[in-house]
Amino acid sequence: MTKKEIFIVSAFRENSVWRQILGICSSLAVTNLMMNSLIMGLGVTFSVAFSSLTISAIREYTPRSVRMMVQTLIIAAYVIVVDIFLKANMPAISKQLGPYVGLIITNCILMGRAEGFAAQNKPLDSFIDGIGSGIGYTLVLLAIAVVRELFGFGSLFGIPILGDWWIRWSIMVMAPSAFFLLAILIWIINTKYYKVKA
């Protein structure tokens, strides 16, 4: 596979969220605002790309018996880097995302990419694969957040779009709406692009 193909496969064709149904919890939790979703998506992209790169670089020296521990440790280290960076440079967003930044560690996408791709492929390919799956995840987050922020707050990225006449839908602000929206998104994509049999 060429580098471009790796990217397209991991970001779209085998997208972690709509194809592999991974990373669902955070897709539900942080998607009530566009800005939070974007920062969360970038945080995941950074963590998954660099953890894949590192895991791939040391894959030949890693003993099989402890490889999962090593992967978790590397992922945790990069996630803490993101957390510290946000706390130091973007305190407002760090406060809004709260515990979810730290919880990137438990995001299945990272472990999935580490085990499924980085453990068997070259460092650069793994890095591109990580970027791809991170971007795929970010796209899903943003797609859900567009709907939730617009209907729930009447704004996008905090800029008011709908006027005062708009009655905010409280359901969109709460977690259950993300369940519906994510399901609808997966349904549309599956029927449109994957020809799923009923």
Binding site: Y61, V70, L73, V81
Partner: peptide
């Protein structure tokens, strides 16, 4: 291996 990896990453953090 595990000890070395832990020390390196904890050090960086």
């Amino acid at each position: 291996f595990m000890i070395i990896i832990s020390v390196v990453f904890v050090g960086i953090l």
